[in-house]
């Protein structure tokens, strides 16, 4: 099904994104889709191609550009993640990723609010708002009556998961996400969900990461980027072990990523699903109206 109106809305969103970022001094940097290592995180699955994989995000290559001294960069392009399909997931999707050297997570939240408003306006829709900013600990207290800092795996998911992070994610999906409404930022994730973000030590350490939601739709994932190559290699080993235990091949560690991480300035980075942004703003029940999709059997 081709939806001409949906495709026009998407096109106006794409040009609004480029106008917005160029207006703020961001440089569009194209990077390869076919790469030696397509992912880092244990729960991402790559589509293999040639002697490598198709990227799950443009992160590794963009970090090389940052390490080389570019301070504000972005890319919009296709990314692929195997084993993901549903109304709000496609194996292939359009990702917007942008990096801003010297910014704090609060600055990026302000920027997301402004970007989403600019895109909505370009689509002829009212900008959503006001945005809420909640830590994960606050969100769990409000919606599930659970204090994350005091609750073990058994308490989080009623004994269904042995691993704390697995229990956390299940509790998030069952008890928190269904209650989200309006535009929301969820920040300070448990350290097991850090991926490539820095960790803020404290009585209950958290990952300096946030996610942006429009209603229940997860729109974007932002990071205060890790620039410690030793920590990177430790997390890579942990990811590999988790994958091996689940019977999946570990992701090869991207050599450019390790080198770039060592030279990375203090920077934020954020990845936003463009198909989701358009669909959530337009109020569609799924991603389809904004996409041309192949027919698979």
């Amino acid at each position: 099904m081709i939806d001409a109106h949906g495709l026009r809305l998407r096109a106006s969103a794409l040009s609004a994104i480029r106008r917005f970022l160029e207006g703020r001094g961001y440089l569009e940097v194209p990077t390869p889709v076919l790469v030696p290592s397509g992912a880092f995180e244990e729960h991402l699955h790559v589509v293999r191609a040639a002697d490598g994989a198709l990227r799950t995000s443009p992160e590794f290559a963009l970090k090389r550009a940052l390490a080389a001294g570019l301070g504000r960069i972005y890319e919009i392009g296709p990314c692929l993640r195997d084993r993901e399909s549903g109304p709000w997931h496609g194996r292939e999707f359009t990702m917007l990723e942008w990096y801003r050297v010297g910014a704090e997570p609060d600055d990026v939240m302000d920027e997301v609010e402004a970007l989403v408003a600019a895109v909505a306006t370009a689509m002829g829709l009212p900008p959503p708002g006001p945005w809420k900013r909640l830590t994960l600990r606050e969100a769990f207290l409000a919606h599930a009556g659970i204090d994350l800092a005091e609750t073990d795996a058994a308490g989080l998911s009623k004994g269904r998961d042995a691993d704390w992070d697995d229990a956390f994610i299940r509790a998030f999906v069952e008890d928190v996400e269904p209650h989200l409404s309006g535009p929301t930022f969820l920040l300070d994730w448990p350290v097991g969900q850090a991926a490539l973000s820095r960790v803020h030590d404290g009585p209950w350490p958290v990952a300096r990461r946030f996610e942006a939601f429009l209603g229940r739709v997860e729109l974007a994932n932002a990071f205060f980027e890790l620039n410690d190559p030793t920590a990177l290699l430790q997390r890579a080993a942990s990811s590999a072990a988790t994958r091996a235990a689940a019977g999946d091949a570990p992701h090869p560690v991207d050599r450019d990523l390790v080198r770039a991480t060592a030279a990375l300035p203090r920077t934020t980075g954020i990845a936003l699903g463009v198909d989701r942004l358009v669909a959530a703003l337009a109020g569609w029940p799924n991603l389809s109206p904004g996409r041309v999709e192949a027919t698979w059997n």
Binding site: H43, E84, G86, H89, F172, V173, E177, Q193, N221
Partner: peptide, 13 residues
């Protein structure tokens, strides 16, 4: 429905 939050595992609600 397929759901996959943030950095977590995939679930079927």
């Amino acid at each position: 429905q397929f759901v996959k939050p943030g950095k977590g595992q995939a679930f079927t609600r």
